[in-house]
Design a protein around this nucleic acid. Sequence first.
DNA 1: AGTGGCCCCTGGCGGC
DNA 2: TGCCGCCAGGGGCCAC
Length: 271
Amino acid sequence: MPELPEVESIRRFLSSSGFMTQKVETLLVHHERSFRNESGSELEGAAFTSITRKGKKLFIHLDDGRVLVVHFSMSGTFSLTSSPGPDDIHDRVIFTAGDLRLAFHDPRRFGTIILTDDDSLIRGRLGIDALSSTLSKETLAFLLGEKKRAIKSVLLDQSIISGLGNIYVDEILWAAGIHPLIQASEVPLPSLYLLHSQMRRILMASISLGGTSLGDGESNYHAGGVRGGYYPYLKVFDRDSERCERCSSVIGKIRVAQRGTHYCPSCQPFT
DNA sequence: AGTGGCCCCTGGCGGC
DNA sequence: TGCCGCCAGGGGCCAC
């Protein structure tokens, strides 16, 4: 499930690939719900110019001002191969340009690509990016401090802070010693400041390793078939019933905001 | 403002 | 070994 570090890894991969300087020659949509053209004209003939990211979404900019907005959701990723090539049964949308073939691979079909004239509405619905240089610890404390929901639920809310998903929220809360069910407005200021620094540290560390790949399923491969290397560094996620490396307590698993939630009952007390 | 439920979908896993 | 049934999970939407 691509979160900020995985999407950023895909962005960097695509940015440095030959695809970003190409003119799209063909667009093939195998699954209608995966691709929506909200712009006035066809994609073919437009050229890619650059690729940016906000939260978990990618914005592929075209030379005519339009934008392809990519949301990977649960199981989406890109695979870049040579063209022509065989289509995998889970390739939902395929772009070709020159001798390259970029496939939006999405087994569970939750992901979407939208072609739009104006991405400002989509961008506007997203809260500030979790790694934005303008997200100071004071701003973060302000954004969280007024919310009366469980801190985990607030961190998962993409309209407040964008980019965090289930894996990294669990990791960040463990690193900051905050129980996932504590009301955001009740978290002490020093803890919120610690949350801020740990969030940046963890996200950047994961990006440097290409993100997290779970298990060995194909859906967890990133663009180009490269697996992220952060999984061994996860402290609580997917480690319920193992020992906490800080205090040796048994890591617990509960449900918060309809999500499986991993935490250390000793390092993250509910007070 | 916040919560809870439903839905989308299917690979993977537990149970037998 | 094989089959069946269940479930995770991001996010949009809706009811309360």
